[in-house]
Nucleic acid binder design. Structure first.
Length: 884
RNA sequence: GGGCGGUUAGCUCAGUUGGUUAGAGCACCUGCUUUACACGCAGGGGGUCAUAGGUUCGAGUCCUAUACCGCCCACCA
């Protein structure tokens, strides 16, 4: 069937086509792998986006990288599973919905747990639909039939089972610890969920009177004067001579009046402040440990929202900032405040709501992590898991080797409830996978489930196997686990990747994946992190609407390297669109000559020079593409195929093909169709929509025969020795050099646009090969060329002479150029050739070089020397000729 | 306080075992409404590869310092 290219618009418009093809792929079930036990599958579990809002460019990058890998491996014939899902995102999602409530003047406490959960679920439904739609628009080829959510029954069962297993092994425990407390979220956080930032603060010096020596005192320095209410000691370093004699004495706590001891502990630095530290075990991690060592009372002075509680006496009810002001004023009024200094120190903030963290003693659940970390460290050390880029291996190992117990309980409502039931009768804790009806110790029915939920990363940590059915023995788990690649951003290496490795090994005895590919963050054109508050966020869908998904994908991938941040602006996206348009128009050209009568099968005997050249180049590119896609070099891969299509196929092959088509020559169509079809296949993983569209169009026009119904299930092109034509590649490069030189000469001498120039080309045995191309050269460079093997005559006077590696070009057109300029140019070239000769000679005469450099390098250098000498001879002759 | 990354053309970045004359996109200059494409074609200018040493026959690439920028980790009140 002939498709008239004139009926197609001149510019490619992605809009209506993308949705159509996505629907087609989905309908045909290409995204769902068929389990084939004779083949090793390629498996990639999608990092589940948080259900906190729209997807941003970071998600678009992740999706694109994953889609590239998945489409590539699928085209290589591997049963390929890309399993999608979303994450309930615990605290992050709860904060978002709480903000929505706040707009209505509500809080979760006001509406109650049940109503709040209802709000959460309706938010989730909206959000998940939205995320799915966004993914669809980006072209992700993930298996929609396996779409998972962390709160689904399967993953939830995995969570409870894991908890119980670890609990039974004694690897989960409940304990009173200092934890990072967010007073806004009213929950404990893990260390990772706290962002430290330097802040300008003050160091207040406060005197604590000695109980038994009126008028004498010890001065402490503190950044947190309000915590004085919870002080239960003052500590000094045992080696500090200033305080040696005072250790053991009692001090009177200002404002409070409580008697507290002066103790000695190694923790205290002698150099800082006064060398005496007020010790508040309930509100400082160090002090907590000191308190433990010295059996100090732990006095918690804050309620869940960091307001002073009943332990704060008359200050009760003040929040921590007000309390600080009032207490400082009281200290000053009563003469306890000695001085104030400016002081910069790191302050922790809640990762999700930015509220200043309050270190606070509370009872929480922890994972005893050391024994879980050990095999996870081994797996990376032995190379069973590799991390790309490699430098993150060190970061990973360093963190894992210094890992601390993981606080997993959150005082939130949104998440997996901790599967532990407390008995009101005997106090025993019953841990169970399924809801028990009675206490396992005393069989009382008066039991109540722990109110806390688990850290959202606890369920994420199981994601590689919980989505495949674990703890049940499923076919999926059996066939697809361990997975192949974990692709994600480097900023969640600890949060997620490390936890998956630990939990994966703990639950299944196998590593969860073999390769970790870490991508960088996307920044705006100025290199700043995109954020809603800065207003520099680019919405992927807005880009897709304007430029198409393929253009966006191109711009996201081009030039990126693993683990490095990249910048994205309009320019780059336009480059992507331009490339799509270029490809589209190349196909429009092809369609002009393609119909069911077009020959499409290549006859090797009839291949011309440029045919062999483009086939050979295509072949090399296929080799490179496979290598780079295997090595995770996506940025380089897309540039390679881009450069091939634009710079070789379009700029040279198609231009030469036009001449053939106009001259009733051997048809270029079989080769052209073959090359373009394979190019589309090579590009498909990167730009799936346009490649499918064009592939189907050419197929419909009878451009090639295939039993495949879609490009996405056709084979990824591989290197084929039969199409490797080294000699023709070299010959073609001489031809293109000749054309370039002629064009260059025209431009340089400002030859009239309508004037055809004459040229003689002397190129030994190549003359026979290239002389059929005079018509081509006439079209491409507007020059009439005569090819000869050897020059027999002298060079005609006043000619432009160009010396190429394998050819000598003489353009007798004295009337069209400036004689002086030409002479100067030749002299300059001669100069360079002489310098080159000198450099090479000294190099080649160097004994050390001769003895140590590999033979082929020496030969190469020698060849270059010969070339330089020959060039000189020719140039001298031409100069002489011209000057005559 | 440790650790890591970056510093290459005006801008954004490639450059994977050290080996021709360091590349691309965008921007810039010149000329082209050539029936695939002006989202284009042809030609061109532009880089002492941050600095200083070192290793090597040979360094953008390896080593050692230094400077600036950025990131991560860390309990010093």
């Amino acid at each position: 069937m002939h498709i008239d290219e004139n009926e197609l618009p001149k510019a490619y418009d992605a809009r209506e086509k993308e949705a159509k093809w996505y629907e087609y792929w989905l309908r045909n079930g290409y995204f769902t792998p068929k389990i084939d036990k004779t083949k090793k599958p390629f498996v990639l579990i999608q990092p589940p986006p948080n259900i906190t809002g729209n997807l941003h460019l970071g998600h678009a990058l992740t999706s694109t990288l994953e889609d590239i890998m998945v489409r590539y491996h699928r085209m290589c014939g591997e049963p390929t599973l890309w399993l999608p899902g979303t994450d309930h995102a615990g605290i992050a999602a709860q904060v978002v919905v709480e903000r929505e409530l706040a707009k209505e003047g509500l809080t979760r406490q006001k509406i109650g747990r049940d109503a709040f959960m209802e709000r959460m679920w309706s938010w989730v439904a909206n959000c998940r639909a939205n995320i799915s739609n966004q993914h669809t628009r980006l072209g992700v080829s993930y298996d929609t039939t396996r779409l998972a959510f962390t709160l689904d029954e399967g993953p939830s069962l995995a969570v409870r089972t894991t908890f119980k297993n670890l609990y039974d092994k004694g690897l989960i425990y409940r304990g009173e610890r200092i934890t990072n407390w967010c007073p806004r979220c009213a929950t404990a956080l893990s260390d990772l969920e706290v962002d430290h930032e330097d802040e300008k603060g003050h160091l207040w010096y406060i005197r604590y009177p000695l109980a038994d020596k009126p008028g004498e005192y010890v001065t402490v320095a503190t950044t947190r004067p309000e915590t004085i209410l919870g002080d239960t000691a003052v500590a000094v370093n045992p080696a500090d001579d200033r305080y040696k004699d005072l250790v053991g004495q009692m001090l009177i706590l200002p404002l409070v009046g409580r008697k507290i001891p002066l103790i000695a502990d190694e923790m205290v630095g002698i150099d800082f402040g006064t060398g005496a530290v007020k010790t508040t075990p309930a509100h400082d991690p160090n002090d907590f440990e000191v308190g433990h060592r010295h059996n100090l009372p732990i006095i918690n002075i804050f309620d869940n929202h960091a307001c002073i509680n009943e332990n704060g006496g008359k200050y009760k009810g003040l929040d921590r900032d007000e309390a600080r002001k009032v207490i400082l004023k009281d200290l000053e009024d009563q003469g306890y405040l000695v001085k104030v200094e400016d002081h910069v120190h790191a302050v922790g903030h809640c990762q999700r709501c930015r509220t200043t963290i309050e270190p606070q003693a509370s009872s929480q659940w922890f994972v005893k992590i050391e024994s879980l970390a050990k095999p996870a460290i081994e797996a990376v050390k032995t190379g069973e898991i590799t991390i790309v880029p490699e430098r993150f291996t060190k970061v990973y190992l360093n963190w894992m080797e210094n890992i601390k117990d993981w606080c997993i309980s959150r005082q939130l409502w949104w998440g997996h409830r901790i599967p532990v039931w407390n008995c009101h009768a005997c106090g025993h804790m019953t841990c169970a996978v399924e809801t028990p009806t009675e206490c396992e110790a005393c069989h009382s029915a008066d039991i109540h489930q722990d109110d806390d939920v688990l850290d959202t990363w606890f369920s994420s940590g199981l994601w590689t196997h919980s989505t495949l059915g674990w703890p049940n023995k499923t076919e999926d788990l059996d066939y697809f686990y361990p997975t192949s690649v974990m692709e994600t951003a480097y900023d969640i290496l600890f949060f997620w990747v490390a936890r998956m490795i630990m939990m994966g090994i703990a639950n299944t005895g196998k590593v969860p994946f073999h390769h970790v590919y870490l991508h960088g963050l996307i920044r705006d054109e100025k290199g700043e992190k995109m954020s809603k508050t800065k207003g520099n966020v680019i919405d992927p869908l807005v880009v897709v609407d304007e430029f198409g998904a393929d253009a966006l994908r191109f711009s996201l991938i081009l030039g990126i390297t693993p683990g490095n941040d990249s910048k994205l602006g309009r320019n780059k996206i336009e480059a992507g669109r331009n490339f799509a348009n270029k490809l589209y128009n190349a196909v429009r050209f092809v369609l002009r000559y393609a119909n069911e009568d077009t020959p499409t099968v290549i006859d090797n005997a009839k291949l011309k020079l440029e045919d062999k050249w483009i086939l050979s180049r295509l072949n090399s590119v296929a080799k490179e593409m496979n290598q780079m896609l295997t090595d995770f070099q996506f940025g380089e891969a897309i540039r390679t195929i881009h450069d091939f299509i634009w710079g070789e196929l379009c700029d040279w092959y198609i231009e030469m093909a036009k001449v053939r088509l106009n001259h009733d020559d051997q048809s270029p169509m079989p080769v052209l169709l073959t090359v373009i079809e394979r190019s589309l296949r090579m590009l498909h993983p990167f730009m799936p929509f346009i490649t499918e569209e064009l592939w189907q169009t050419i197929k419909t026009a009878g451009g090639f025969a295939t039993d495949k119904s879609s490009i996405m299930i056709s084979e990824y092109p591989q290197f084929d020795e039969a199409f490797h034509f080294e000699k023709e590649e070299a010959q073609m490069s001489t031809l293109t050099e000749i054309v370039r030189t002629l064009r260059n000469t025209r431009s340089e001498y400002e030859v009239d646009i309508n004037k055809t120039i004459d040229a003689y080309v002397y190129c030994d045995e190549l003359a026979n090969v290239l002389s059929p191309y005079t018509a081509t050269i006439l079209t491409l460079a507007k020059a009439t060329v005569r090819f000869e093997e050897k020059r027999t005559d002298d060079v005609p006077k006043q000619s432009i002479v160009e010396v190429l590696p394998n050819a000598e070009i003489i353009i007798p057109m004295a009337s069209l150029f400036d004689l002086e300029a030409q002479l100067a140019k030749l002299n300059k070239e001669l100069d360079e050739a002489v310098k080159e000769q000198a450099r090479l000679e000294s190099h080649l005469n160097d004994e050390t070089f001769r003895s140590r450099a590999p033979q082929q390098v020496i030969e190469k250098e020698q060849a270059r020397l010969d070339a330089a000498l020959e060039k000189q001879t020719k140039l001298r002759e031409h100069i002489k000729n011209l000057a005559a």
